[in-house]
Design a protein around this nucleic acid. Sequence first.
DNA 1: AAAAGCCCCTGGATGC
DNA 2: TGCATCCAGGGGCTTT
Length: 271
Amino acid sequence: MPELPEVEVTRRGFADRIAGARIESVRVGKPLRWALAVEPGALAGRGVLGVRRRGKYLLVDLDAGLLLMHLGMSGSLRFDTALPAPGTHDHFDLVTSRGTLRLNDPRRFGAVVYVEDEASPLARKLLGGLGMEPLGDGFDFEAFHAGLRRRRAPIKQVLLAGDVVVGVGNIYASEALFLAGIRPTLSAARISRPRALRLHAAVRDILARAVERGGSTLRDFSNVDGQSGYFQLEATVYGRKGEPCRVCATPVRMMRQGQRATYFCPVCQKH
DNA sequence: AAAAGCCCCTGGATGC
DNA sequence: TGCATCCAGGGGCTTT
């Protein structure tokens, strides 16, 4: 569900409010993707230092250890001092002195995992292979281009894989490639330098813009206060199969790449 | 090493 | 209205 912008908007929505809180209790509902990996009661009494993001993971730093949270396809977080009794899909509550952080995740592809530190085997397994952060200063073009050159797979799938650059999900991959004028099937290794420059800028711009708009093209994304982000940012090609391209009016095409839908304009993205 | 498939799970939309 | 089918924002794991 959530791509980088939604995860970042989620983080900003509660990071300052939860920092400095003390954990009072932890409630675990139905199993998520992985087990919490700590006895819930063992977290009571610990302090919350802050919340960082790495790719689509949220890292909740405690005064001892940290929680890795992932929203999967259908997860969302709420943070409030007065939440109703947990519903069917509320599978994790972190009850703190400042409020309760609650994960709602119908499909349960998400996860909350405790690790002692980022060097732990589990943290390394999950975070170790992640690529560059697209927002901020670390998104170096030369490294990006070098990353593309060593991959022969279609550029759409290289963007999605997250080992060159993180945070680009299925919607924003199509959107960024449209913005850059690049055909999603083009082998990443065959992208010329000028076009790689356009893609580098497109990835950054599309994600930054979505963060600014407060989250997204996603129909059922809601922020930590429970407000919906219903089509705050209109998709240019994603989900618009058969509809006219906003630039040239040619019908947008849909195809499948690795079991995921890809949308593109055959004219604006010739190769 | 890289690439391609396979799953995990639930709910909503669509079609008969 | 009822039921079957398809599809969905992710990504780790297994197999080529």
